[in-house]
Simulated scan of single mutants.
Amino acid sequence: MGDVLMPLAIVGLILLAGSRNDRIVPFRRMNASASLHIPLILELLAVALRQGSSITRALDTVAQVVDVGLGTAVGKVTASLHQGVAWSESWALVCDDASYVGQACIVLRDTLEASWRLGTSPLPRIEAVISQLNGEQRTRVESQAARLSIRLLLPTALCFLPAFVLLGVIPCISAFAQGLFA
């Protein structure tokens, strides 16, 4: 899945960023029902950071292409960071709820915090979080597939078992009985 997300992220940011100056190519926002997944958002962020953007500039760029709720929340964070508000205080307002926006903001905050405070490259941490989230998603999908196969087995057995008994077992027993009593 990561192999598919990376080219998509690169193309998206190339279209978005255009050049390294502050000019941003206008891009239509996605609606809330078509919200991007958190690993894809992190991939977009990683592409922007690889191109030399600062953390706040990369967050601004990604905020313009994600759904309106998350984009607005990240935009508020970057605006407060530009005003000199501390990292944890900037994220405190948008990470409160348990919705998709709150969860995405918590992941972004936790992923980028060490880089913001210590000045280290955020790319290794972003890649580790993407790998972890993709692994969790894969595990979740596999467990749901296992549950689905069990749920499908019962109706299938209830349909095929009577047919097997009527078409297979009963004729064999009657043929055996005829041979035995004849």
Rank of each mutant, 00 (worst) to 15 (best):
V4W: 05
V4H: 08
P7H: 00
L13Y: 04
L13I: 08
L13G: 09
I14H: 05
L16H: 08
G18T: 02
D22Q: 07
F27M: 12
M30I: 13
S33R: 05
S33C: 01
S35R: 15
I38E: 00
E43T: 13
A46G: 11
A46S: 13
V47N: 09
L49S: 03
G52S: 04
I55S: 11
D60T: 05
V62R: 09
A63K: 07
A63W: 09
Q64L: 11
G69T: 07
G71C: 04
K76F: 12
L81M: 03
Q83F: 11
A86R: 02
W91F: 14
A92Q: 14
L93Q: 09
L93W: 10
V94K: 02
V101W: 14
V101C: 10
G102P: 06
L108W: 03
T111A: 11
T111G: 06
S115G: 11
L123C: 02
P124W: 00
V129Y: 05
L133Y: 01
E136T: 06
E136V: 10
R138L: 14
R140H: 07
V141N: 10
V141I: 14
R147A: 02
I150T: 06
T156C: 11
L158I: 06
C159R: 08
P162S: 01
P162Q: 01
I170M: 02
A175R: 15
F181P: 07
